[in-house]
Design a protein around this nucleic acid. Structure first.
Length: 158
DNA sequence: GCCAACGTTGGC
DNA sequence: GCCAACGTTGGC
């Protein structure tokens, strides 16, 4: 059982958007970075926990929790020339890019912004806080997941 | 294989 | 809007 942080720009796709999807589930498409692709293809498993992070917005923060309900499969948006993230090198046989399905679990009672994370001894080392960090899918330690639950005063929904 | 140029990300 | 950091591209 592993934990992950996934970034989304709320102007593109927010936690509220995920909550509104059918079955509260959506595929996490459009990742076009090899390191993140490897996580999506090889390491992220059904049942893993996801911290939903809002990036590139007025208040960057961890805003809620989700879980993985389908593991790595071909990101079909890479195959469609009409899609923004179309990749002419991707084929059915060699899709190059992968995605998982994630399901909404809950909002945090209060979003945890970057100052909140920095001030917490167990969270100040999170990779999302590192300068220059651009990875949109990144591993989270079990202690970090637990600390976020404790800090938020909620039970583990997994 | 090097590396400069370029485009993108993302906090502030 | 600014700008630092990073990944990718492509000439050589």
């Amino acid at each position: 059982m592993n934990y992950w942080l996934m970034k989304s720009e709320p102007s593109n796709f927010s936690l509220d958007d995920l909550q509104r999807m059918q079955n509260k589930t959506e595929h996490w498409d459009g990742v076009r970075n090899y390191q993140a692709r490897n996580f999506l293809r090889d390491e992220i498993k059904v049942g893993d926990g996801v911290l939903f992070y809002h990036s590139n917005c007025p208040e960057p923060a961890i805003v809620g929790l989700a879980r993985v309900v389908r593991e790595g499969y071909a990101d079909h948006t890479a195959l469609d020339p009409r899609e923004k993230h179309f990749d002419p090198k991707a084929t059915d046989e060699k899709p190059i890019w992968f995605m998982v399905d994630v399901q909404y679990l809950c909002h945090l009672p209060q979003p945890l912004n970057r100052d909140d994370l920095r001030q917490h001894p167990l969270l100040s080392g999170m990779s999302v806080l590192r300068k220059g960090n651009r990875l949109s899918v990144q591993p989270v330690k079990a202690e970090e997941w637990q600390a976020i639950l404790t800090l938020s005063g909620i039970a583990d929904p997994l």
